[in-house]
Design a protein around this nucleic acid. Structure first.
Lengths: 326, 326
DNA sequence: TTGTAGGCGTTATCAG
DNA sequence: CTGATAACGCCTACAA
């Protein structure tokens, strides 16, 4: 340690953390020594001695998914220059992984935690409830928050998209779904209930798979759908990757969008507005969600509120575009 | 701590880390107590006492970029059940951010480090060289590895793509580039040198911008390019997002691909093969890169090799598809 | 198989 | 403004 340098000990600690409490002379000598020795304080010792860390743990189910990439960039934007480090955990849509990561995170006594969704296992909820830090659940809303919560209703959003297709006169609606995690299932229910209410639902026009979403998969599912239900005139996709696959497959089959087929995606990825034709989608506020989640978290941390229930509904927006313009 | 429970102390530590060294009876009692108290060992204390951690730090320049998402999923695959946690840092293409994150990571005395690229600042290289752990640089290859390195030559890959366009008879080649970080610039040089050698290079057909790549930006850049050089008959894009934007814009302008325009992207995202027409791209082995990077790292960690220079070149592959099929 | 002693590098607390 | 002392909770080494 830099104690050799001058004739100090804890002063180094002070010089580093609150320079104003140390005389200019010492401060300078210490600064030089630190630079020379390449001294970097030991995070573990600091955490142990102070009993706190500046880690914000973030648990998301996928790193390959654009949706979470946007949330993440919002989180980084929200952190800005706040003195916190985000530590990312990838649960890979697995409850077991989530529990295991939770244990890892909790062992670090994080300053705060951001977790995805409302479908934690009992075990995970138990772990979370023992956490000595504020927690934000993101991506969804419901009335059973562990602590804070920010998101939107996937059920309502999917319902609105479906209503839009109906309103545009599409009657033989199909649903394409991949991955089928709990969020996706809520979207499906939103579709089904709205379609049923409008009298346009048919089980034969629903195709789902547990496989992860890709554009290629969208093309394949749509090909299946067309064979199974040739009279289909509208498709609501679980997400935009699938929708893009449908767009390409429809082009290949010379099925005209929007004249013969209405197409609606979900998430409103950037590319949907640029596609030809542009694709209707449900816009969600992912960046804002990530950003506000950290901001809420940091406020709770700084206010020393270990638990301060609150639910923020960010809503959604059906962006009507060329693919449903008839 | 759980010492109250039985009549033990360090035995708890052993029961948790190497259960076989503790009698079945005690092990069981401890297991119960742990479950009941929700006891989770303190990571900081453990790190401080043992002088080591099982953290693998990963520094990438972007979380919103599919390219790094794939690398990451490879990393997670490579970690599998190995007893390491990955900690992610997002440098956001900033050298300063990278240095700062490096300091944070090094303060945790990580077991290993994965960093992106070969363009670290002097300061960053200095920090890295003081690290007491193995390091893997990913995404590129060169002859100046800090420790281990796995990637490919962006220069050569872009050259090969360009050669492919030339071979297919395209002569008025253009280049579209966004972000223009060092890797992108090497790709540009690969394009330029190859195009010049073939006598088909023209500066007026090159458009670049520091803005980040999006599909929409691809459409815009292509629109500019067509106005500036109406005789253009081939485009090499910096990446697939731009290429997809070109595809859509060409459709809007009724420019036929591949008859009137040859199009080649870079990265070979999954969607390129499904697009209509399918889009030629340069495939890179991102998942494998991430996976092998951790595997190399873990081997070095376990062999206790603090430094074991080696460079792995994963190569690339020009995937010729419909968009250059004439 | 279990326990004891000592210390990891930092910070809180209280003196000087 | 600076320093001494005592933890923080766990692990290594050695002993019983």
């Amino acid at each position: 340690m830099a104690r050799q340098v001058g004739v100090s000990a804890i002063t180094v600690s002070r010089a580093l953390r609150s320079p104003e409490k140390v005389s200019a002379a010492l401060r300078e000598r210490i600064r030089l020594a630190v630079a020379e020795l390449g001294y970097i304080p030991d995070a573990a010792a600091r955490a142990l001695a102070s009993g706190r860390t500046d880690v914000i743990g973030v648990l998301i189910p996928s790193v390959t998914n654009n949706v979470f990439a946007d949330v993440l960039s919002g989180i980084y934007a929200g952190i800005e220059d706040a003195p916190f480090d985000v530590q990312l955990g990838n649960t890979r849509y697995s409850g077991l992984q989530e529990e295991s990561l939770l244990r890892v995170f909790l062992s670090q006594k994080p300053a705060g935690l951001i977790v995805t969704g409302i479908d934690q296992s009992e075990e995970a909820r138990a772990l979370l409830s023992t956490a000595q830090c504020p927690i934000v659940q993101i991506m969804e809303t419901d009335d059973r928050p562990i602590d804070m919560m920010i998101g939107f209703s996937h059920y309502a959003a999917a319902g609105a998209a479906t209503a839009h297709l109906v309103e545009r006169g599409y009657r033989k609606l199909g649903f394409l779904g991949a991955r089928m995690d709990p969020r996706t299932q809520r979207r499906f229910r939103g579709f089904r209930d709205t379609a049923e209410a409008a009298g346009v639902f048919s089980k034969t026009r629903v195709i789902t798979t547990p496989a992860p979403s890709t554009v290629t998969l969208g093309s394949r599912l749509f090909a299946d759908l067309v064979e199974r239900a040739p009279d289909i005139d509208g498709v609501f996709c679980n997400n935009d990757d699938l929708a893009l696959g449908v767009l390409f497959e429809a082009q290949r089959r010379r099925i005209s969008i929007p004249a013969e087929l209405g197409l609606c995606g979900f998430n409103d990825l950037e590319m949907m507005a640029t596609a030809e034709p542009s694709v209707t989608s449900v816009r969600t506020f992912r960046h804002e969600m990530g950003q506000r989640a950290v901001v809420m978290l940091i406020e709770a941390i700084q206010a020393d509120l270990a638990r301060s229930p609150q639910v923020v509904d960010l809503g959604y927006e059906v962006k009507a575009r060329g693919s449903t313009a008839r």
